[in-house]
Design a protein around this nucleic acid. Structure first.
Lengths: 342, 342
DNA sequence: TTTCTTTGTGGGAACGCTCCCGCAGCGATC
DNA sequence: GATCGCTGCGGGAGCGTTCCCACAAAGAAA
């Protein structure tokens, strides 16, 4: 049952001013913590604000200042673990800095829809933009926006000049692959994410680098799409290849599908085949067997992203060269063991 | 490389008016698709808009109309499958109706933080509010907001008078339990979600009802918290009880933890124990064995929610009795079988 | 003393829209 | 032929802030 609150127009600055016996301007000064307000009047104004339950109209402020305490986040509209974790982490980080978050998600990651989402945000006069669009097609969409809008890209194109926060995919993948190699496997197979994602590309590169550094032979690359289904599909193939003893998957869900395909074919993990995933979804510790994986720190990404964005907003100058790389950590569990003796 | 776009103040309505040779008022009329504008001038104005690349300033509009084309969503700040799926579904549905979405997530679901999130949204002059806060403590927080702000509650308190969209948890749980009973099990155990969630309570109720209707004995209730860990913890207990042959878990992640506990104790699914989950997370089909589960249609929830909200926004009158219930569907897979012959 | 700065305050304009009202032109009605 | 209503359009006020400038009082420097 909602209590009845009459609100024939909520109180405005003028009402506060009148009650406090000062001018609207003085109220504004108190609100914005300006100097040159005597302690006495400050108190009077504060009291009036409290009495009326006054809350400043952010819309009006936005109109006159041309900007608002809102940051826009562009993200792919999926339940994908990475992006959705990022989104909540961003919301949290922004909130702690007094900013609200406007989401403008895009269903498909093509240039057009990303550009649309950006435009929508600009119409709302957001103070800055965070773009989580880890695909190449985001580049052109971002290229055409005005120079002076603060922008931070997450896991974006390393080649593009722009403020960038990335999880170090390459290092993470390298660590995963090395972990497998060190367990004694002669080589490591890889089921990748979708080819157009930078994340997926980085993981492929880390895998290749680790293999090359160890002088291991590089097996053909299998391509997935982040889904368990793609892990299953590729897994059915791998299960029939007796020489595969170690697989690094681009994420945990692919690993899950792989796990199931292997189990169906009676191949045991980790006794016959070792697996390392990526993401450390909360469930990974309860897969059968518990999955060794690589954990990116999404909170750190979000914190760094907001920090960089706020710096731009305050300075007014987008710093195109500011970068931040977050190193992921390997979480060893039970899905890795030495290869079977032949 | 961002292209340099000068923007010494973006074009305003006046600029368009001047270029088209009409008054600002006429431009406004064209924009808002008012009648009483001749086709001829409409075209002229449209041309001027296109030439200048004019985009209306939503902030100014919001100031004068007192509302904006933004809906606020209050959701728990978690990566939980349900809430985060809802969030993206809402964003999608809102976008299709021309609304942007402001998220104001809350870290903990207590009255205070929910009230804060609501206040933040109100400051932004959102047109309406969607609250995904499926716990009892949300009630009081919502009770104190002004009568005239459009509000839709998702999976909220059925007792409270307010516009409500809910997944029919009771029916879903009943279907899950009946499915197990029909397979021949004499009774069904249940690992619930956190006690303060309405979702969890509804699922418990459905389970109880189905048991009672079938005249089956009701085993003690085990309590989880949506996490795989809680499924594992309770699973270790269940695994040692030879009489349990069927378990309905409050969500798929709990089922995953249970699956693992059972596997560690050498108890086979579904040969010895059958399991039904809830949510149908995309990975459920790739658990070992593939999980029989109940799928709530989050898109339908979001669509209904936005529809109800927009109706309120347009009418200006919150319809406290409007309700919508979305029936979930049972997805049979391989985790259910008849009980072992004794 | 006179002048200059500093501190606290108030009065308006402006931000970019929408809303209210007025008004000319024109066909329909009495 | 006068009155009415309808269509198409423009002028101005106002939304609730912040920003720019003015100005009085009080102290510091000349």
């Amino acid at each position: 049952m909602r209590v009845s609150v009459k609100r024939g127009r909520p109180p405005g600055m003028m009402d506060v001013a009148r009650l406090a016996g000062v001018s609207h301007q003085t109220v504004s000064r108190v609100l914005n913590e300006h100097k040159n307000v005597s302690e006495q009047t400050r108190l009077k104004v504060r009291a009036a604000i409290a009495e009326l339950g006054y809350r400043p109209n952010r819309t009006a402020r936005a109109l006159v200042t041309g900007t608002s305490k809102v940051i826009g986040v562009v993200a792919p509209n999926t339940a994908l673990y990475g992006p959705s974790s990022m989104l909540t982490a961003f919301e949290q980080a922004a909130q702690e800095s007094g900013f609200a978050v406007n989401v403008g998600s895009v269903r498909s990651l093509n240039e057009r829809s990303i550009a649309d989402a950006v435009e929508r945000h600009l119409d709302q006069r957001v103070a800055g933009l965070v773009v989580i669009a880890p695909v190449a097609s985001a580049g052109p969409a971002l290229a055409r926006l005005p120079e002076d809008v603060p922008l931070v890209t997450i896991d974006g194109d390393p080649e593009r000049a722009s403020t960038l926060v990335t999880v170090d995919q390459v290092a993470g993948a390298r660590a995963a692959t090395e972990h497998l190699l060190e367990a004694g496997h002669s080589t490591v197979w890889h089921i990748s994410g979708p080819a157009d994602w930078f994340d997926a590309a980085g993981r492929v590169r880390g895998w290749e680098e680790a293999l090359k550094a160890a002088g291991a032979e590089q097996p053909p690359l299998l391509t997935g799409d982040w889904s368990a289904e793609s892990g299953y599909r590729n897994g059915k193939l791998l299960a029939r290849l007796p020489e595969v003893t170690a697989v690094f998957t681009a994420n945990d869900h692919i690993a899950l599908g792989l796990l199931r395909a292997l189990s169906e074919h009676g191949r045991r993990v980790p006794e016959e085949i070792s697996i390392v995933g990526f993401d450390d979804v909360p469930q990974a510790a309860y897969y059968t067997p518990p999955l060794t994986t690589v954990r990116p720190d999404f909170d750190a990404v979000a914190t760094a992203g907001v920090e960089l964005l706020l710096a731009q907003i305050e300075s007014g100058t987008p710093d195109l060269s500011a970068r931040r790389t977050i190193a992921p950590t390997l979480i060893p569990r039970d899905s890795v063991a030495p290869p079977p003796a032949r």
